[in-house]
């Protein structure tokens, strides 16, 4: 294989590449937050109890909350009552796995193509 000589990259072009990568990074990480699509939130059911007994706290638990500085059960009611919602659709789960597997397959195939070039240039002298 012919020896590949990489072109020298100009300062402007280098700067532009960094800008592209940064825009992609911040886009991917901030977009779910900005669009309020970020998951992970808990919710408190309506009309949830706000007394120690109503929230099913036993004597030890109440004592520990008191020691943490919460003598009023209403102050920690939101923390105690909040629950995650783990309902999900199988379709979405399968779709996610297809995306993950597809991503790795694409990467392995393109990598392998590039790798063969590297090996033949390195070892075919």
């Amino acid at each position: 294989m012919a020896h590949y000589v990489a072109p020298k990259q100009s300062k402007i072009s280098q700067l532009f590449d960094v800008a592209v990568l940064l825009a992609l990074t911040f886009g991917a990480l901030y977009l779910p937050l900005l669009l309020k699509l970020a998951g992970g939130g808990k919710s408190v059911p309506d009309g949830a109890p706000t007394t120690w007994e109503g929230m099913g706290q036993n004597a030890t638990e109440i004592a520990q909350y008191n020691a943490l500085g919460f003598t009023d059960p209403a102050a920690v009611a939101d923390i105690i009552n909040a629950r995650f919602d783990y309902s999900f659709s199988w379709g979405a789960l399968i779709l996610m796995f297809v995306i993950i597997v597809g991503y790795y397959v694409m990467m392995l195939r393109l990598s392998d193509r590039e790798y063969r070039d590297v090996i033949s240039e390195k070892f075919d002298k």
Binding site: P32, A38, G39, F84, F88, A92, M96
Partner: peptide, 12 residues
């Protein structure tokens, strides 16, 4: 996926 599916897909 159970909590942060959107971020996972955005990341990929």
């Amino acid at each position: 996926f159970l909590g942060y599916g959107t971020q996972l897909v955005a990341m990929i």
